Simulated scan of single mutants.
Amino acid sequence: MFSIQVDSINELGDAAQQLLKAFPNERIFAFYGKMGAGKTTFIKTICRTLGSKDNITSPTFALVNEYNTDSDSSIFHFDFYRIKNSEEAMDIGFDDYVFSGNYCFMEWPEKIEELLPSDIVEVTIEEVTPNSRLIRANKI
């Protein structure tokens, strides 16, 4: 189990490094948290840590964004907040992304729970104070 409290946005880089170090062989991360908890901000920081210089934004309407890294690998960032059903995820080629071997970071994975592979890292972000977050992760 991974757990870290960050008390400012400036500490997210260290938290991202520690999360990736805690799960070095994992590529599929499901992010849980309330609206405004910081899921997108943390994913952006993780992508930067992995070497992406792309413009990283929440794919709220596109469902998935692809970012490139310095090592020419891809990172896939999903946002299922607006999805109506799991068929929409399948229509964008969800399985192809998830089983590509590349990093996949998912916001609002509870919307497609039945499609999630059994071997993922669940990351939960909880607001402690307006500027502090408790980030916990566990491989399921």
Rank of each mutant, 00 (worst) to 15 (best):
I112E: 08
A62D: 14
D95G: 01
R82A: 09
S132F: 11
G101C: 02
C104E: 08
T40R: 06
I125Y: 02
A22T: 13
I43F: 00
W108H: 06
D96R: 03
D54K: 03
S58C: 07
V128L: 14
V6G: 00
D54C: 03
S86W: 01
F78A: 03
E113I: 14
E113P: 07
I125K: 08
S100F: 09
N68Y: 02
D79C: 09
E107N: 07
L19D: 12
R136V: 15
F76C: 07
E126H: 12
E107W: 02
E88N: 04
E26V: 07
L20A: 03
S73N: 14
G13P: 01
I135E: 10
D54I: 08
V123T: 10
I28V: 15
I92Y: 01
K139L: 14
L20V: 05
I112A: 04
L63M: 15
I125Q: 04
F23A: 02
I4T: 12
D96V: 03
I120C: 05
G51P: 07
G101H: 09
V121R: 10
P109C: 11
I92Q: 00
A16H: 09
Q18M: 13
E88T: 04
T41R: 04
T40S: 12
G101I: 10
N25Q: 15
F99E: 10
L134M: 15
